[in-house]
């Protein structure tokens, strides 16, 4: 892609407060290393994540979005994540049809005990997005030149 090797993607993470947020917290307290590329917004449940949040994040220039909740069966509200699963399945497919690389939207189940999984996920996603390069979808720039214009 020709961008400089220091370039760090910016990822917006929507983590449910009961599992994934606690998982990310555990990654921190257990001193697991992961890149500082992810910014976290806590949501009450992954079911709170409106696809509009994802589009808006991409529109604002985030390079990737992560939506993470409890494993199936473990949602604090019993079934919230099942609705998330349906909603995200169609969102991911439709974004792909628009021409957005599906790697820019990731969905995961991370429990409160899976600090290591969260750290790995953040590392992996960062690596993938580095491969993919900056999100210029909404900037109107055709050429990759390592800079971003404000949307």
């Amino acid at each position: 892609m020709g961008q400089d090797s220091e370039w760090q993607p910016r990822i917006l993470g929507f983590l449910c407060r009961w599992c994934s947020y606690a998982g990310a917290d555990l990654a921190g307290t257990s001193r697991k290393k992961y890149p500082p590329s992810i910014r976290v917004i806590q949501v009450p449940c992954s079911g709170r994540v409106d696809p509009l949040f994802i589009l808006k994040a991409l529109r604002l220039g985030f390079d990737g979005v992560l939506v993470s909740g409890c494993h199936p069966g473990d949602c604090h509200y019993q079934t919230g994540n099942y609705f998330t699963r349906r909603r995200m399945a169609i969102t991911k497919r439709f974004l792909e049809y628009m021409g957005i690389d599906p790697r820019r939207l990731q969905v995961s189940w991370v429990s409160a005990a899976e600090g290591a999984k969260f750290a790995e996920l953040a590392t992996e996603m960062t690596r993938e997005l580095k491969e993919l390069g900056p999100n210029r979808l909404f900037t109107g720039e055709e050429q990759a030149n390592g800079t971003k214009t404000a949307p």
């Binding site: 199936p72 079934t79 099942y82 609705f83 699963r85 349906r86 909603r87 995200m88 399945a89 169609i90 991911k92 497919r93 599906p102 990731q106 969905v107 995961s108 189940w109 996920l121």
Partner: peptide, 30 residues
């Protein structure tokens, strides 16, 4: 394709995104 759901073919069925199946697609989830 994903949910074998066809809009407006069953008036008793709940709307697509207000329901789920335990076996819904999951292969995209990490």
């Amino acid at each position: 394709e994903l949910f074998n759901y066809r809009a407006g073919t069953d008036k008793e069925a709940p709307p697509l995104l207000t329901c789920y199946e335990p076996t819904d697609v999951e292969d995209f989830i990490r």
